[in-house]
Structures are given as structure tokens and as C-alpha cells.
Amino acid sequence: MSDQQTEFADFFQASWEPCLRTVVAVVGGPQLAEDQVAEAFAKAWALWPKVRRHPAPRAWVVRTALNTGASWWRRRGREVLLADHDLAAPGDLDSGLDSGLLTAIWRLPIRQREVIALRIFLDLDTATIARQLGIEAGTVRMHLSRGVSALRHELTPTRNMEAGR
């Protein structure tokens, strides 16, 4: 392997899972997310001299993966988003998987999902997320705040029931 091939292979091995988890968090369907991420990595290799100099190459891959599938997802919308995913049985809670919380994440507006996923899995700061999504930093903070509020509501059912009495 050439130096560039080795460098890309290392980047690919280290970045596949966080990029895939980010895209799954946004689009829901893991199978199609895998295809989108694989295609994005192929594009990254085709443009590697440029992508390797990008300030956040993983974010470039995620943005490309989301763009690749955007029109397809838009046409199928929420129907595929939720139906394509095998939600966990209650017994999976031991593994940390909370199907109610996952459903709540995938019901958030897409911008809120993107901002939360980029923060969680790529550990991007507000300014970098803003650059990647082409929006203002203040808008990122607003989406993050609203998304977190919605998820907090899902995570505190007892308190919500008491408030509803």
C-alpha cells in the first residue's frame, strides 16, 4: 500500500463506526445508513487529497452520506425511518438500549437529530456543527436545546405524569 492508501485505510477503520452511528441516529434505518456511509467513504477516497486536509474529515463523510440519501429518504419519509428499524424488546434495556428513547430521537425534526448526533458521536463543537450544516451557531444552539428538551421529557415520565394530574 502507498502512504496515502495506508492513511486512508487507517482513517476508514477508525471512523467507520462513529460515522455510521451518526448517520443511523439521523436516518434511522441501519441497513441504508451503511450503504450511504460506504458510498461516502468511496467518495472520500476519490477526493482524498482534499478530504484529508478538511478540518473535520469525519463530518465531511457524514455530511456526504446524508446528502447521498437525502432525496431518497425525503420521498419515503418517516414510514421507512421507523418501519425499517427493529426496535429493541424491553429485555434489551440491560444493554443500555431504550426503545422509547430511540423512538423519541427519531421523531425529532431532522435538524435537531443532526445536531445531537454530530455532538454525541463526532464530538463536534457548536461552531464546527454550524459550518458543517451551513447554519448559524445560534441556530445550532437552538436546535440542540429543543432536541434535548424533547428527549428529557421522554426520560422523565414519572415527573410528567405527576405534572399532568
Partner: peptide, 24 residues
């Protein structure tokens, strides 16, 4: 909590990097 739940989803292992590079 969101990270824990999303991280618990099973993910496929990465495909062969050679096939990705061939596509590129």
C-alpha cells in the same frame, strides 16, 4: 442517555477497505 441508547444498537463491522477504495 441518548448516546448510550444509540451506542447499544448493533452495527455491522466495516466492509473491506479494498472494496471501498475500488468504488472510489
Amino acid at each position: 442517555a441518548a448516546s448510550r441508547s444509540l451506542s447499544a444498537l448493533p452495527m455491522a463491522s466495516p466492509p473491506d477497505v479494498q472494496s471501498i477504495m475500488a468504488r472510489g
